[in-house]
């Protein structure tokens, strides 16, 4: 690290951890972490004003490497821990970094109820379409027909759309981007941190070593090229003919509304009870 010119990302890393980091060559998690750090840096938030909470999984290793308040918790239960952090210290900007399996399968129940309450969390879902860390089992977002180690003849389950799930459950800021569009991801994370209420940012990422190899998607550059070619911005959705948009991933801010936030409601309740008591 001595002979390397420093950039913004480097100044936020914990240099007592082992680098190069644990992720495989070409894994998008590093790109997402870079976007997240740049988003926090551009907003000018102090390191003690940010709490990063994660569960278990490849993407959930992210808090290990960054110098914020961090909490690395049990599988699927990142959101309950984050709820506790947020309710105890409402001034913190709580970021939950989670994977597709961690968020929608094991922690699915916590996810929908956090969306329903409209708690001020920023949830970054890194969707790599598979359980990478545990050996390549299929997850709720593995596309139908794709191969995983637990579906060697092709997955027969329909796919969970994380953004649709969040919109249906009542999240107030929902956006989707890909790891290739790193500037756009950075912008969405920034908007999510600024938004008062539940923000869900799905970032479609590449797992070249397990998902890519099992499904013959090529290496990391090829998978990122596919992200670039198979996605369209939400603004172009109405302008293009339907045959051009069919089967493509829609990127962009899919929902943005302002609603009453949970910690404020909770504080109002506490205040009103205090007033009643003092009467």
């Amino acid at each position: 690290m001595k002979n390397q010119p420093q950039k913004t990302v480097h100044s936020y890393l914990r240099h007592n951890k082992k680098f190069p980091h644990v992720w495989c060559a070409g894994c998008s998690n590093g790109i997402v972490l870079g976007a997240l750090i740049r988003a926090v840096d551009e907003l000018g938030l102090g390191r003690d004003d940010v709490a990063m909470v994660s569960g278990i999984g490849c993407s959930s290793r992210m808090p290990v490497y960054v110098d914020f308040n961090t909490l690395h918790t049990i599988h699927g239960r990142a959101i309950p821990f984050a709820t506790g952090v947020k309710l105890h210290k409402p001034h913190l900007n709580v970021i939950v970094v989670t994977g597709d399996g961690d968020c929608t399968a094991i922690g699915g129940n916590h996810f929908i109820h956090a969306c329903r309450r409209n708690l001020d969390l920023t949830i970054v879902v890194v969707n790599n379409n598979i359980y990478g860390m545990t050996g390549g089992q299929f997850s709720p977002t593995t596309p139908t027909g794709d191969i995983a180690t637990t579906s060697p003849h092709g997955n027969i389950d329909p796919v969970f759309d994380i953004c649709d799930l969040a919109i249906g459950a009542g999240a107030t800021f929902v956006a989707r981007s890909t790891a290739f569009h790193s500037l756009e991801s950075e912008e969405f994370i920034k908007r999510g941190l600024e938004h008062k209420g539940m923000s869900v940012i799905e970032i479609v990422s590449a797992c070249p070593v397990i998902y890519g190899r099992l499904n013959k998607k090529g290496g990391a550059p090829e998978m990122m090229k596919q992200m670039r070619d198979n996605s369209i911005p939400v603004k172009a959705l109405d302008k293009l003919p339907p045959e051009k948009t069919k089967g493509k991933l829609v990127r962009g801010i899919l929902k943005h509304v302002e609603k009453d936030e949970y910690t404020l409601r909770y504080q109002r309740l506490v205040d009103s009870l205090k007033q009643e008591e003092s009467k």
Binding site: P5, P20, S28, G30, G34
Partner: peptide
């Protein structure tokens, strides 16, 4: 290259 490097190994001037 600076933004897309997953290993923070490239610093662009």
């Amino acid at each position: 290259c600076d933004r897309l490097c997953p290993d923070f190994a490239i610093t662009g001037a």
